[in-house]
């Protein structure tokens, strides 16, 4: 597979959230605003790229029987790095994302890429794979967050979009709204796929 294809597959064809339905817990929980979606997406992308780098570099050293604990230690370390740096330099985002930053550890997308891709491929394709998958995840969270913020609060990036008369659909900000928006977006994407065939 060419490197370009390896990158773009994560954006659409194998998009983690919309196509593989992986990593749904953070995707549904933190996407109450566009900023939160982007922040969570970039944090996950960073962890994914770093863990893919280390796993791919060490793939011949790590024995198969202890690979899962090894991957988890590697992933958990990078998550802690992200958490500390975010609290030190992006304090407001850290407060908004709260418990979901440490929970990146159990995002099956990251362990999934380490196990299914990085542990079997050389360094460069693994980096590309991680970046593509991570940005696809970011894109999905950004779209979810934007739709929910736009119609649920009437703002985008905190800036009012509709006039003062707009009555926000608060349901979209509440947890059930995450599922509803997600379902509508999935339906839309399936429709587009049907047209492409």
């Amino acid at each position: 597979m060419s490197l370009v294809k390896g990158f773009t597959k994560g954006l659409w064809r194998e998009n983690a959230v919309f196509r593989l339905l992986l990593g749904l817990c953070p995707a549904l929980a933190v996407t109450t605003s566009a900023v939160n979606g982007l922040g969570m997406g970039f944090a996950t992308t960073f962890v994914l790229v770093c863990s893919n780098i280390v796993v791919a570099s060490l793939r011949k050293v790590i024995p198969a029987r202890v690979r899962i604990p090894s991957f988890i230690v590697i992933i958990a370390s990078f998550v802690t790095v992200v958490q500390l740096c975010m609290e030190a330099y992006f304090y407001d985002l850290h407060k908004a994302l709260g418990i979901f930053i440490p929970l990146i550890v159990v995002n099956c997308l990251i362990l999934g890429r380490a196990e299914a891709y990085a542990s079997r491929n050389p360094l460069l394709p693994s980096v590309i794979d991680g970046a593509g998958m991570g940005l696809g995840f970011t894109l999905a969270l950004f779209v979810l967050g934007s739709v929910r913020e736009l119609f649920g609060v009437g703002t985008l990036f905190g800036v009012a979009v509709f006039g003062a008369g707009y009555q926000p659909l608060i349901l979209l900000i509440l947890p059930p709204g995450a599922f509803i928006v997600m379902g509508l977006l999935l339906a839309g994407m399936n429709r587009i796929e049907e047209f492409r065939k």
Binding site: P69, S70, V73, V81, A88
Partner: peptide, 30 residues
């Protein structure tokens, strides 16, 4: 098995202690 896992955990511990040390002051300040 034991050796590899121990080395990975030790490496992780080392990196984390460095990052924690570097971010402690900014976090306290925040």
């Amino acid at each position: 098995l034991v050796l590899v896992l121990t080395l990975i955990a030790a490496g992780a511990g080392l990196i984390l202690s460095l990052v924690e040390g570097a971010t402690r002051a900014p976090i306290a300040e925040q």
